[in-house]
């Protein structure tokens, strides 16, 4: 489906909602980048700036009883599922009011109430978990779906191939969303594999797969929507490959010397937020005032989240031992 066809299913409220979500992610992560530099956000932080279109278009169509698994670059997916900005920020700052009470941090955001079941820092390890959630839907009955986000680096991991095999064998209602940003950590995809497209890797399994421009939020929205409708009927699995680009390094502090300036400039021109704004204005889906408001409200909300997080205490020392084991309910 072309993006022109996609635009017919994206009305003004949806378009503006996508824009707001993308701005919330962008504003959050830009602020996080500053807080990493000052040391207020400790640890390893991987930003998805430039990839917000995928998170917004996919999560914007899911429900809170669906199961979403993400990876180390997962802030956007968490926020797009509806995780509160303030508790997400508090988690990144290691505070008691964080989503995981400061036990997880940037790479491990979990918000079960909003359908975010996990974020794993081991590349590819989240894919089987999502299949387990999909299997649970199958065994229990229901129209929930499982969605897992991963990068193109995960495709070379053993779990990926085992998972594609099993998901297709068992026809699980799972949608695998590959954010192909061209780099596995510091290394371009071409140095890791002869297979350029992830959809080609899975071709022998005969599962529905599609490769879309991940920086065109309309295209992602339309393609994922088609897959989602099938998954809601218990059909699957499906693979959606979104071609995108992270405008930051692999982690905050990565000098990213492996990239060409020209390439970065080209992708900056294809920034998914800029493209959505341009298109929405052209098509009259929203006006200039709304665009400005989306950004302003996002930055204000993020600033309030920072204040919330700063006021939240660090976890008490006795919390060290809490939740090592679950108690009987």
């Amino acid at each position: 489906m072309t993006t022109d066809a996609a635009s017919s299913i994206i009305d003004a409220p949806v378009a503006f909602s996508l824009l707001r979500t993308m701005w919330r992610i962008r504003a959050f992560e830009e602020r996080v980048s500053e807080l990493v530099a000052t040391g207020e956000v400790p640890g390893l932080v991987h930003l998805s700036i430039g990839q917000e279109g995928v998170a917004a278009a996919v999560c914007g169509q899911l429900r809170h009883d669906d199961a979403v698994y993400t990876g180390h670059r997962g802030h956007g997916h968490a926020l797009a599922m509806g995780a509160p900005l303030d508790r997400a920020m508090a988690e990144l700052m290691g505070r008691a009011d964080g989503l995981c009470h400061g036990k997880g941090g940037s790479m491990h955001l979990v918000d079960v109430a909003h359908g975010l079941l996990g974020a794993t820092g081991v590349v590819g390890g989240n894919i089987p978990l999502a299949l387990g959630a999909a299997l649970a839907v199958r065994l229990r009955g229901g129209d929930q779906v499982a969605v897992v986000f991963f990068g193109d680096g995960a495709v070379q991991a053993g779990h990926f191939n085992e998972s594609i095999n099993l998901a297709t064998l068992w026809e699980l209602p799972a949608i695998l969303v590959c954010e192909n940003n061209g780099f596995a950590e510091f290394t371009p995809r071409s140095a890791h594999t002869k297979v350029e497209r992830v959809s080609d890797v899975v071709a022998p399994y005969d599962l529905a797969s599609e490769t879309v421009d991940g920086n065109d939020v309309f295209a992602v929205y339309a393609a994922f929507g088609r897959f989602l409708a099938r998954a809601r009927q218990g059909r699957g699995p499906m693979l959606l490959e979104c071609l995108t680009y992270r405008l930051r390094g692999h982690y905050e502090g990565d000098p990213a010397r492996y990239r060409q300036a020209l390439e970065v400039a080209e992708w900056q021109a294809r920034d998914p937020i800029l493209r959505l704004e341009r298109r929405g204005l052209e098509q009259g889906l929203f006006g200039q005032a709304e665009v400005a408001a989306a950004e302003r409200e996002a930055r204000e909300a993020v600033e309030a989240a920072v204040q919330f997080a700063r006021q939240s205490p660090f976890p008490a020392r006795d919390q060290l031992f809490v939740h090592t084991y679950a108690e009987q309910e």
């Binding site: 199961a67 079941l117 089987p128 978990l129 387990g132 959630a133 299997l135 649970a136 839907v137 779990h159």
Partner: peptide, 10 residues
Amino acid sequence: GIAIGAAQAG
């Protein structure tokens, strides 16, 4: 991993 995901789902 599938068993873990299914366990997390209840």
